[in-house]
Amino acid sequence: MWKFIHKLASPPHFYGLAAKIIPWFFLPGLILIFYGLYGGLLLAPPDYQQGDAFRIIYVHVPSAYLSLMAYSIMAISAGIGLIWRLKLAHAVAAAAAPIGAWFTFLALATGSIWGRPMWGTWWEWGDPRLTSELVMLFLYFGYMALRGAIDDTAKADRASAVLALVGAVNVPIIHFSVEWWSSLHQGPTLMKKGGPAMDAAMLYPLLAMILGFTLIFGALLLRRVRTEVLYRERRTRWVRHLVLSSAVEKK
């Protein structure tokens, strides 16, 4: 088992394998998203309270979910990299941060656009979810800023890993405190996300979108990890061979 993990995590092996796997994430992801779009925009009936504006959840919920998942992946791989000194794990953490930040931005932007017709304002501090997402975005910025400030890759990996772990301990606390904070004054009615009351015609497209977004995220992540691996291994022999052999093929 241990041997298998090491072989899988060896940079040349991963580099080749990832290139083969990426389409297997990307294409099913696209198919699921197209089904989700069709089901969500055409088949699902309008919500009895929010009308057609509720359809924004088909992009908002998957983005919000991925923003949290990307942070978890980042923190877990940072921890693995710190404890077992697995270089690939650090590459995964480095690759996950910018994608996570983009999805966090998407969750914020779509939540804010949804809020405009629902609350009559682009930004409602009373909504704990939007506020926590904003803090998440700052956490991502901090992580990327620390990484960017340290020139030495190995040092940047380890320093940002400590920050990611400290952040991971704090994320639930932040969510909890923002919930408490907004519960003190009567906020506007919150967006109901999922929940058992949801009609099947609304729910299945949402599940398809969540799964589709996750697969697309996986493809994006693998692509970025591949680049990270190539960059980190730029002085090794296998990269030299790789570049030389493909240069010959081109001729």
């Binding site: 779009l37 925009l41 504006a53 088909y58 992009v59 908002h60 983005s63 998407l106 932007a109 656009i113």
Partner: peptide
Amino acid sequence: YVWSCFVLT
């Protein structure tokens, strides 16, 4: 609102 969200995504 709806279409700007989907296009932005």
